[in-house]
Amino acid sequence: MDKTTLKLLGGWLLFGVIMCLLPLVVSTGTLRILIFAHFLAIFAMSWDILSGRTGYISFGHPFLIGIAGYTTAILSFRYGVPIYFSIPAAVAATMVGGTLFFVPALRIRGTYFALVTLAFMEILYQMTKVVAPKVTGGTRGISGIETIVTGAVPNYYLTFAAMFVIGLLLWLLVRTRIGIALSAIQMDEEAVKSAGLNTTKLKLFAFMVSAAVAGIGGAFYVHYLGSIAPRGIFEINFLFTILIAALIGGAGTIVGPIIGAYFLTMLLEFLRPVLPGMERYFLYGIVALVVYVYQPNGIHSLLASARRHLSVGKS
């Protein structure tokens, strides 16, 4: 492991320690906000490992989250399966079901790929309402789903641990040769093929990792909310929030989506006491736009250049 990686791992460690100490100094209300930030970070990282790295833009991530959410909700709520079985089953279902659906999509590029993934989301949205509504709960969904833990502090630690472990593993993954090859696909897929690498396998791998992460996030999310409804998962706004978190934080960096998720969630909740209505979404849109126009590579890049400036100033 090189010196830079070790230093950055120190940064992760420090981040983990500080976040673990946070419940000692902030209110439970703040922890509740951070819990949603953790979920958004997991979903945004899931999107990032597929779309941010390979350039294959997915508009269907709620489809993956929905498979996981509904699988664990139905198994645990309808059939009494213990959640320590239903959650892994949900992740497996997301990977299997999602992969089967996405294999043909991996042969399609660009806008078509994005639209096909969007279609998957819409299909599952309609399916949850019309196919066996007594099992899925139909349009009203399922309420009263078992929670893993209760209370702000336990949920904060649980979701932070999940986000931190996923983030760290993905960050390490993108620094391997596979991670570099995935980035190369985004730059010039033909060149990667010419180099003798199997790009279909690489893309499939990226999707499976992405599906697994979305599956873990989706299953935990539903057991945190205690309910699931089609409108809550397959909402275009939910999809946009995931995309914006990844883009505004810095797509393709893994750390960026985490920053983006914290930034967006905290900005919205910070504005709530002052602007409780729709106005805060207007302001949020402006702030997001300004950040994105000023630095299209996201906050991650903004922080990196600030750090460089500081280093130059000191030397």
Partner: peptide, 22 residues
């Protein structure tokens, strides 16, 4: 004190948490 749900399920849960915890 008011909390907007925007008729969205997850936003409703956040709004309920906000009213109670903040």
């Amino acid at each position: 004190v008011k909390a907007d749900t925007r008729e969205d399920v997850a936003e409703g849960i956040r709004a309920y948490e906000y009213l109670n915890e903040v």
